[in-house]
C-alpha cells in the first residue's frame, strides 16, 4: 500500500485528508467542551438538501457550488435550532434532534428525485452520503487544505476567547467580551470544517470526525492547549487512515473507514490514556492500596515495638511511610 505515495494524485488526496482531520479535531475540541457535540451532526445532515438544491438549480456538478448550498442549508438549520429552543419550551438537544431529521429527510427526498431524473446517474450525489476521497480533484484538495489551515489559525488567534466561552460564558460576558459573536464565530468554523469534510467523509459520518478525536484527546491531558493539539493530531491520523485504506482497497468507503480509525484511537485512549484512562486508574488504585497496606503494617509493627518498650518504633513507622 505504500506505493500509493508514489502516485502524486493520491499523495495530494492523502495530504488533503490529513489537513481536514486536523481542522476537524481542533474545532471539535471546543464543540465537545461546550456540550454541542450534536451540533456538528445537525449541520452535516442539513447540508444534504443544500447540495441537492444547488444541483437542481444549476444542473451542473461543481463541488464548490455544492459546498455553497451545503453551507447555506447548514446555517439555516442552526438558525432553526436556535429559534426553536429560544421561542419554545423545547430544549436545545430536542430541537437539534428535530432539525437534523427534518433536513435529512428533505435531502433524501430530493436526492431520490434527482437520481430518478434523466441526468441523475451522472450527478454523483450519492457519493456525498458516505464520501469518496478518491473523487477529489487537485483543486478540491487545495481548497480543503486552505480551509483547514485558516480554521486552525482562527482557533489559535481566538484560543483564549474560545476557552472563556467554553468554560464560563457568563463570566466572559461580564468581562465585556461579545460572547454571542464568539459563539457564532465558532459555529461558523464548525460549519466550514463539516462542509469541507462532506466530499471525503460524507454527510452521515463527518460529524464523528469532529467529536471523536476530541473525546479521545481528553483522556491524555488536563490542559486545553494540549488537548486541542492532540485532537487535531488524532483527526489527521483518522483522515489519513480512512483515505489510505479506502483508496488502496477497492469497494471500501472513505467516511466509515475514517470514523472507524478515529474510534480505534478513542478505544486505545480510553484504555491507555495517562490522565483518565482505565489502565492508569487501575494502577493508581492499586498503588494507593499498596501504600495504605504498608503504612498500616508498619503502624502495627510500631505499636508492638512500642509495647515492648523499644525505641525503634518511630524509625519503623518512618520507613513504612517512605516505602
Amino acid at each position: 500500500m505504500l506505493e500509493m505515495l508514489n502516485d502524486p494524485n493520491l499523495r495530494w488526496i492523502l495530504f488533503g485528508s490529513i489537513l481536514l482531520g486536523l481542522g476537524n479535531g481542533i474545532v471539535g475540541t471546543f464543540s465537545y467542551l461546550r456540550k454541542m457535540s450534536l451540533m456538528g451532526d445537525v449541520l452535516a445532515h442539513a447540508a444534504l438538501p443544500g447540495i441537492c438544491i444547488a444541483f437542481m438549480l444549476t444542473g451542473v456538478k461543481e463541488v464548490w457550488l455544492f459546498l455553497i448550498g451545503a453551507a447555506a442549508a447548514a446555517l439555516a438549520a442552526s438558525a432553526c435550532t436556535n429559534l426553536i429552543s429560544r421561542h419554545s419550551r423545547i430544549k436545545q438537544d430536542a430541537a437539534m434532534g428535530i432539525v437534523l431529521s427534518v433536513f435529512f429527510a428533505i435531502g433524501i427526498v430530493l436526492m431520490t428525485r434527482i437520481q430518478h431524473s434523466e441526468y441523475g446517474n451522472q450527478s454523483g450525489l450519492d457519493k456525498f452520503l458516505f464520501g469518496q476521497a478518491a473523487s477529489m480533484t487537485m483543486g478540491d484538495v487545495y481548497a480543503l487544505g486552505g480551509t483547514a489551515l485558516a480554521v486552525s489559525l482562527v482557533c489559535g488567534l481566538l484560543f483564549k476567547e474560545f476557552k472563556l466561552i467554553s468554560f464560563d460564558p457568563a463570566f466572559g460576558r461580564g468581562l465585556g467580551y461579545r460572547t454571542a459573536a464568539l459563539e457564532y464565530t465558532l459555529l461558523a468554523l464548525v460549519t466550514v470544517v463539516v462542509v469541507a469534510g462532506i466530499q471525503a467523509v460524507g454527510v452521515v459520518l463527518v460529524a464523528a470526525l469532529l467529536i471523536t478525536p476530541a473525546v479521545a484527546a481528553r483522556y491524555w491531558t488536563d490542559r486545553l492547549a494540549t488537548m486541542t493539539v492532540l485532537a487535531g493530531a488524532f483527526g489527521a491520523a483518522s483522515g489519513a487512515a480512512g483515505t489510505w485504506i479506502s483508496s488502496g482497497v477497492s469497494q471500501l468507503p472513505t467516511g466509515p473507514i475514517s470514523v472507524l480509525a478515529a474510534t480505534a484511537l478513542f478505544g486505545l485512549s480510553a484504555l491507555l490514556g495517562v490522565r483518565r484512562g482505565l489502565l492508569s486508574k487501575l494502577l493508581l488504585r492499586r498503588r494507593a492500596k499498596r501504600l495504605w497496606m504498608l503504612e498500616r503494617q508498619s503502624n502495627g509493627d510500631a505499636g508492638i515495638a512500642a509495647a515492648k518498650g523499644g525505641g525503634s518504633a518511630r524509625s519503623i513507622a518512618e520507613r513504612g511511610r517512605i516505602g
Binding site: 467542551l33 466572559g172 467580551y177
Partner: peptide
C-alpha cells in the same frame, strides 16, 4: 473542564 486553578484565575485578567 481541562484546565488548572491558575489558568482559571488568569481568566480574571482577560478583560
Amino acid at each position: 473542564f481541562p484546565t488548572h486553578a491558575l489558568d482559571v484565575v488568569t481568566m480574571g485578567r482577560y478583560g
